[in-house]
Amino acid sequence: MPVRRSVRAVVALAAAGVVGLGAAGCSASSVASSPASFSTAAAGLTTVVEGPRIVVGDAAAPHTATVFLDPRCSYCAKFEESGGVALAEAAAAGKVRISYVVASFLDARSGGTASARSANALRASVEAGRFAEFQAAVLASGGAEDPLRVADGVEGLRGAEFDRAVREESYRDWVASAERVFEESGVGGTPTVLLDGREVGVGGALYDEAAFARVLRDAGVSGVPGV
C-alpha cells in the first residue's frame, strides 16, 4: 500500500510535528536511524494489551489517541521526541489514552525482519513493565535487527521471560495481527495519529511539541500541559 508521508505522524509513546517538514511519511527511501533523546512522560502509566494494540493510560480518560508507527520509521522517532511528548503528557494528566498500532510494513519495503522483530519485542516489554522506555529506545535505534542489544539500555527490562519471548518470537501472531490492523486502516503511512477516530496533526504539527499540544487542545482535549 502506498505510504504518503515521509514526515508525519504518534507514542511511547509517541507524539508531535516538525515545523517545516511538511506532510510526508515513512517509505523505504526515507528510513534512517538517528538516535535522539525521548521523553519518559509515559513511563509508569498503566499499559495493557487490547487485542492487536498496546494501550497506555487511564481507561477512564475521555479521549483515545490511536498512533500508527513502524519501529524502522525515522519519522516515528521524530514524532516521539516532539509531538509524542505532548501526547504522553496529556496521557499522564488523564486526558487521553494512547492506543498503539505497531506496524511492520517497512520490512517488505526495505528487506530484513527488523520491524517485525522489534514489534515482537515491544509486545514482550509490556509484560516486563517497560513498554514506554523500550519503545523510545527502539525508535532511537531505527528498529535494530537485535532488539536484545537495544534492551540492554533499558533498566529492568532484560530477564529470562523477556529474552525468551524475543529470541523465540513468541508474539509473531500478534505482530501479524497488528500489521493487518494497519493495512486495513487506510491511514496510508506512519506516523499517523487519530484522536477519537479523526486524524490530527497533519503536516508539521506532528513534529513540534507545542504545536501538537495546540492541536490536541483545538480538538477538544482540555487541560493539555504546556498550552
Rank of each mutant, 00 (worst) to 15 (best):
E133H: 07
S82P: 15
A90M: 14
A60M: 01
A121L: 10
L157S: 00
A32G: 04
L69N: 03
G129R: 00
A28E: 07
A43E: 12
A151E: 02
A144R: 05
A108T: 08
P35Q: 02
A165P: 00
E80A: 04
A59L: 05
L139G: 06
V56H: 08
G51A: 06
P71T: 13
V55S: 03
F134D: 09
S37V: 13
E80I: 15
G44E: 03
A116G: 13
G84I: 08
G51S: 02
R167N: 12
S115T: 08
T47R: 02
G22S: 10
Q135C: 15
K95P: 14
S34I: 08
S33W: 12
A119F: 09
V49P: 02
L69D: 08
F134A: 09
A144P: 12
C73Y: 13
T64S: 01
L148N: 00
F134N: 08
A42N: 10
V102T: 14
S141M: 05
G22M: 12
E80G: 13
P35A: 01
F131K: 01
P147M: 11
A43Y: 11
Y100V: 10
D58F: 00
V56F: 05
A119H: 05
A59H: 01
S141I: 13
A137K: 01
G51T: 03
G84P: 08
E133T: 06
P35L: 07
L122G: 15
A36G: 06
S125C: 14
E127S: 04
V48W: 03
F105Y: 04
G156F: 02
A28W: 07
G143A: 13
F38V: 15
V67G: 11
